[in-house]
Computed example of a mutant assay.
Amino acid sequence: MSDAAQLKVQQLIDDNAVVVFSKSYCPYCNNSKRLLDSFDAKYASYELNQESDGAALQEALLKITGQRTVPNIFIGKKHIGGNSDFEAVVKSGKDGKKIEELLREAGAI
């Protein structure tokens, strides 16, 4: 894994209120994006399977988050996790905050 990949991942996280590292064919990724759409959230989706550096970025995400699988979701520069983690936030919140509050604080809605 290159330092350039890690810097790029961090830049994407820093530059976007919400970022979903995804693969276009992944049903869990598509579910997470549909959920975000249902809140009219602004988010960046980075399709790792469609980018020339996607494999390196996925390795960088593993180093940064400990998670290799997709989707790999960040809201307000905070790692949420994968689809099941995101669904849990939607259902019951995270650290006492509901999804709308997290999205609003991040500037996504």
Rank of each mutant, 00 (worst) to 15 (best):
D3M: 13
A4V: 12
A5G: 02
Q6C: 07
L7S: 14
Q10W: 03
Q11A: 15
D14K: 15
A17H: 08
V20A: 03
V20Y: 00
V20I: 12
F21R: 05
K23N: 03
S24R: 10
S24K: 10
S24P: 02
Y25Q: 08
Y25T: 11
Y25P: 01
P27M: 08
Y28V: 07
Y28E: 06
C29Q: 02
R34I: 10
L36V: 06
F39Y: 15
F39L: 06
A41N: 06
Y43N: 06
Y43K: 10
Y43F: 13
A44M: 10
S45V: 12
L48P: 00
L48Q: 01
L48N: 00
Q50M: 13
Q50C: 09
E51N: 13
S52I: 09
A55T: 12
A56T: 04
A60M: 05
L61V: 07
K63Q: 15
G66T: 09
G66L: 11
G66P: 04
Q67G: 04
R68K: 14
R68P: 01
T69M: 13
P71E: 05
P71W: 01
I73L: 11
I73Q: 02
F74M: 12
I75A: 04
H79Q: 14
G82E: 03
F86S: 02
K91D: 11
G93E: 03
G93W: 01
G96Q: 12
G96L: 07
I99C: 13
R104Q: 15
R104V: 07
G107W: 12
G107Q: 12
G107K: 12
I109D: 09
